[in-house]
């Protein structure tokens, strides 16, 4: 394995390239700039046009206005979808929070080797395309006679969010000092009291963080809802419907609202889970 051909890109070559870039700060700054613009341009365009007073989606800007926001916040269809999306987020967070905590607690009672296996299994869905889950769910719901509804979609969201929650909560419990529980019991606490006063407060930050993450995943989801929500359309489904009819400036406003929601949820989730790490 030592003889690499000259043409094969070796990790060493990569590293050398990076090192060269690092030595030329202007070049590397330019490179990073391009990547960032590429990553964020669509979002920037969307946010910018959501404040454009003209319905024409082209530069130059006609002027600043909140008319598209006014429009979506008076549109009952959009509002209903908005409420559904929020409901889905809350329900998903609730289900995954409880299941994630119980599952992670349960897993810690299992022997170390089996634990790794179970964690791997539960993380496996992360590698499966959401589309397959969505189709599978739709077929299964049909089989057992569950109507398409927002509740059906909720269960699907919980399903795709659970591995994330499991991983986050599991990682925090992995660092949890279980002798703290013994200390509580030693001072006279029953198992339940020790759980309530010691375990729970200490893992709660991580659980809350994981729940916020689950909420963000739910709000963001299109595929599961597309196959299982039926007429209970969530925000992404409404947007899809509008896109089919042509790009409509209200899309930018809806998109911006979603962007703010999901990024702030993700941000809070990140903060929670790192604070939980002491």
């Amino acid at each position: 394995m030592t003889a690499t051909t000259a043409s094969a890109p070796s990790p060493g070559g990569w590293r050398r390239g990076l090192a060269k870039l690092r030595r030329r700060p202007v070049a590397s700054a330019g490179f990073v700039g391009v990547v960032i613009v590429y990553l964020f341009a669509p979002l920037i365009v969307m946010v910018a046009f959501s404040f454009n007073s003209s319905p024409r989606l082209s530069f130059p800007f006609a002027g600043l206005s909140l008319r598209w926001y006014e429009e979506i916040f008076t549109d009952t269809l959009v509002l209903r979808a908005f409420r559904r999306s929020l409901q889905a987020a809350v329900v998903t967070a609730g289900i995954t929070g409880v299941l994630g905590l119980l599952g992670a607690l349960g897993i810690l009672k299992i022997a170390k080797r089996a634990r790794g296996f179970i964690l791997a299994i539960s993380a496996a869905p992360l590698a499966v395309p959401g589309l397959l889950f969505a189709i599978g769910l739709a077929i299964m719901y049909r089989q057992i006679g569950i109507e398409r509804s927002i509740w059906a979609a909720n269960l699907g969201h919980a399903l795709i969010a659970l591995p994330f929650v499991f991983l986050v909560v599991g990682a925090s419990l992995e660092r949890f000092r279980f002798t703290l529980i013994e200390a509580a019991q030693d001072l006279g606490a029953s198992r339940w009291h020790a759980f309530r006063t010691v375990t729970l407060p200490l893992v709660l930050p991580a659980v809350l963080g994981a729940m916020l993450l689950a909420a963000a995943i739910s709000i963001d989801d299109f595929v599961i809802a597309f196959f299982t929500a039926g007429q209970d359309k969530t925000l992404p489904l409404i947007m899809y419907g509008r896109v089919l009819k042509g790009i409509d400036p209200t899309l930018n406003a809806i998109g911006t609202v979603m962007l703010v929601l999901t990024t702030s949820l993700a941000f809070m989730a990140a903060r929670r889970t790192t604070i939980g790490e002491r």
């Binding site: 002798t179 703290l180 013994e182 200390a183 509580a184 010691v198 200490l202 002491r278």
Partner: peptide
Amino acid sequence: FQNYELFPH
């Protein structure tokens, strides 16, 4: 306890 196990919260 050896590592004291004070409740950190």
